[in-house]
Amino acid sequence: MISVLNPINSVLFLISIFFAVSIVFILLGIDFFGFIFLIIYVGAIAVLFLFIVMMLNIQKIETDKFTYLTIGVFILIILFMELFLSLSYNYLLIFDSNKVFFTMENIRYIYNIFVLKSDEYYRFLMVESLGVMLFEYYPIQLMLSGLNLLVAMIGSIFLTNFKRGFSTKKQYNQLARNHYLINSNIY
């Protein structure tokens, strides 16, 4: 069932799904993957989707309810069955099955890890150990990668700046329907 007609809104919902997935990763204990997932999918791919949706200018969207509804309900039942099975066997999550939902106990557990920094903390936060590695053992490499980004920034500013100087880009040629006739020397 399609409840959101605007494609931009549906992309925003997709971003919320990415957020949820990254939270699942963090809860599984592979928090570096969670953050990388967030950075790559939300930072790059979802923004790309948004651009494409804005460029394509889609207005018509199918509102056929029943086929989507049946398939969706079927998939939903399978997903819930998986979830309950995993919870009952305590197989996937590192918490106890009692602690999965936001009980007082669970909140206290998270407070112990992140704020009081118990022994669990150091196992838990892979990102911090990565940061320690970068800043303690590879400081020069970090600076060099920063220098790479600086050079790339200088180059992109210089090559695309047409206030001071000249640009070979011609917007009307790019937007024209028969641009290959105008720019025949390229092909």
């Binding site: 020069i140 060099l144 790479n148 790339a152």
Partner: peptide, 15 residues
């Protein structure tokens, strides 16, 4: 350091 410096050299040369 080899990879990062080769990349730095490459980026400057592309520009």
């Amino acid at each position: 350091s080899l990879y990062l410096l080769l990349e730095l050299q490459g980026i400057t040369f592309y520009i």
